[in-house]
Design a binder for these strands. Structure first.
Lengths: 138, 138
DNA sequence: TGTATCTGTATCATGTACGGTTACAAAGTG
DNA sequence: CACTTTGTAACCGTACATGATACAGATACA
């Protein structure tokens, strides 16, 4: 279970929040649906909070709610809010600079990486949280 | 250095093999350019071999060469040959089946994952190994 | 004002994946 | 037959994500 599932959790969480309308949801409540620990949820919520997708309140009767309507939250925003990694990793150690290929391959791969990332972003940008909720409700 | 850099290594390796034409390259030789261990290279080559992208020979004066010309090897094929992971991971544990969202979110995310993966594949399919060599040579 | 509640974070334990390394069988050359 | 090289298995250390405990700070409410 080493793979990063924060995006999946984030979408799940936001779908729950959307269903709760303007009511605050507690991390414990969300954790039960996602089937994990409340702290794990709060960690994801922290990212979503910094990205301006949700609003949290501490204290009694606190919790979290959406900062915007689901129609105005794209999957791309969610992805960027929690994403840490790229599609593929570049070389761990730098290749040999004595080799023509080794000297230039990193740049080429780095540019390719950016291009792919942009492509994924555009694809994810085509969907909103509202679209997801629609599909979940079927 | 936990991230998977096999794709980067694979492109690097194939670019080297393309430069060697029909000459066999030994894993030791490739490892020097990539700046890693020969066994690591052979592990990647094993994937490329099974995918039919390269041909290897054991024994003295053995080594590896391309199975096809660089113009007929797309980055998508390379990616699929070594790729293990998806863009994002699904939930580790299954969500609660008592919750409407939890019950359906996995399917929705799984479909989305496939769609993104397809999109990445198409993007990578636009480039051939020859294109990469071109860029590296500049 | 005091108490209970909830978030936000730090910290530690655990599981897993990858890279690096050594070792060795199998295959092929000469 | 001696030598070379691939293909794999096995093991270690590191990196990282999740899970869990603890606690400070913020807030509602009696």
């Amino acid at each position: 279970m080493a793979a990063n599932s924060q995006f999946s959790m984030a979408v799940h969480i936001l779908a729950l929040l959307a269903g709760a309308r303007d009511e605050n949801l507690k991390s414990e409540r969300i954790a039960r649906s996602v089937n994990t620990n409340a702290v794990v949820i709060r960690r994801v919520l922290s990212h979503l909070n910094h990205a301006g997708l949700v609003v949290s309140q501490t204290g009694a009767s606190g919790g979290t709610r959406l900062a915007r309507s689901p129609e105005r939250i794209t999957l791309c925003e969610i992805y960027k809010a929690v994403s840490c990694g790229e599609i593929f990793a570049l070389h761990g150690k730098s290749p040999s600079q004595d080799c023509p290929v080794g000297r230039n391959i990193e740049d080429v791969l780095c540019n390719l990486q950016k291009e792919i990332d942009k492509s994924v972003g555009e694809k994810l940008g085509q969907y909103t949280l509202a679209n997801i909720i629609e599909k979940v409700s079927q």
